[in-house]
Design a protein around this nucleic acid. Structure first.
Lengths: 235, 235
DNA sequence: TCGCATAGTATGGTCAGACCACACCTGAAA
DNA sequence: TTTCAGGTGTGGTCTGACCATACTATGCGA
């Protein structure tokens, strides 16, 4: 039985970058040193540096692009939902978690966010205005189903953002992302989809109205019914 | 402006494995084909295969080890909290999220889990018995602070598991993991730690008693006070 | 002097091939 | 039958190379 967890070479770089982030020697918008430079700095190969870079990439810490100049290479971004989405998605595929748990969690987070006293009333009002626009766009009969789902997701994430908790917001978005494929295949034909979308539009408007008139308890209740109803259609 | 997201070679393998997981051609305990075999199967280099393997590794889908035989190579496991923890931890370092949001989320998840009607009463009773053991172990005056934190974390995760939602359980564990370093440095000296640990022990016992006597509302309230109080000590 | 095409340069993405330490498997020797 | 030395396949790491890309600098022509 080996006690040594065999330290990986890429962790040298990973820990160094994490420390630089913590001490704000690196922050959003900054460029990371090139892979070849990092390899030389830490005395490891470029291949191992790339392992660390890849992890930061899928976790949504950086984005990478080729070429030279200020916008090339590895740039710090901040997209917390990217990594969480990927993790949930893979574990959903691996049967480590199931759809029931994801839906349950989504209801938990969204109803909590709805009932929270907004941390920033100005932002809350902006959310109400912007969601109104999204509702109008979802009324477009020409809208493709794919576009509808995208705007629908934006609608829910925006509402959740009112609570002013980016962890909850990211988890919400991740839960939504992780089952988007599942939703897409469960109602395959357009004929079954048309009546569903009509109900969704009505529900969205009711939810928005509750928010706009400050009925947060009612908004939470409508959200729960909305989510529960939608997933009952996908079985 | 490039419209092509430039498909990465490693995604070929990643998608293939995800599909095999979804269709249960691969499940927990199975061995993945060797890296050299995967490279040849998909017509890409071993380096690109390793990118995919590395992602599955940090996401907690597989564990890798050297050597040959049935327990070597890449084996499917299921550790959803690994990937989420890593993501939260990095984004906490990158200032994409902050401690307040994590604590708030933790309270949300734990109080929800406490108030849920347990899906499995037998498991719930086992949790109550096992947490009693953990409480006794935390009473040991000789216990190192590190060990205390580990058992403490186990205590909370176990209670959250009563709700029977592995997404919530994983997120709980991840939130706890992501700030463990932060906690460790915020109360550095043992003299400040001793009075804190006394209060924690008392709170744990009260929480356990509330669970054991079926007072779930009260347990949730005590949990919220417990978490809030503890983090108020770390400022 | 100004404008613009062109060569130069640095970037990440990919590949090929090599060597290592490790864990197991096999078969010969005791 | 037991023991142990070699064989074999695994992931981990390294080196060095080539590619497409995107910015930068050069220098030519007007």
């Amino acid at each position: 039985m080996s006690v040594n967890p065999a330290p990986r070479a890429y962790q040298i770089v990973l820990q160094a970058i994490e420390e630089d982030l913590r001490t704000e020697k690196l922050s959003v918008g900054d460029q990371l040193p090139g892979e070849r430079a990092l390899a030389e700095q830490h005395g490891i190969s470029r291949a191992s540096v790339r392992d660390a870079i890849r992890i930061l990439d899928v976790m949504g810490i950086i984005k990478t692009s080729t070429g030279s100049g200020p916008n090339s290479g590895a740039v710090i971004v901040s997209n917390p939902s990217a990594g969480i989405s990927q993790a949930l998605r893979l574990h959903l595929a691996a049967k480590g978690i199931n759809v029931r748990e994801i839906v349950e969690s989504r209801i938990l987070l969204e109803t909590w966010a709805a009932q929270m006293n907004p941390r920033d009333p100005i932002h809350a009002q902006q959310v109400i205005d912007r969601t109104a626009v999204l509702i109008m766009r979802m009324d477009d009969a020409q809208l493709s189903r794919e576009s509808f789902h995208r705007i629908d997701a934006e609608f829910h994430v925006l509402l959740a953002s009112m609570a002013g908790n980016s962890v909850v917001e990211s988890m919400m978005e991740s839960l939504r992302n992780s089952i988007s494929d599942y939703v897409a295949v469960s109602i395959p034909d357009d004929e079954a989809w048309q009546p569903v979308v009509k109900v969704l539009r009505r529900q969205h408007k009711a939810i928005h109205h509750a928010f706009a008139t400050g009925q947060r308890e009612r908004a939470a209740q409508l959200l729960e019914e909305h989510i529960t109803w939608f997933y009952s259609q996908t079985h």
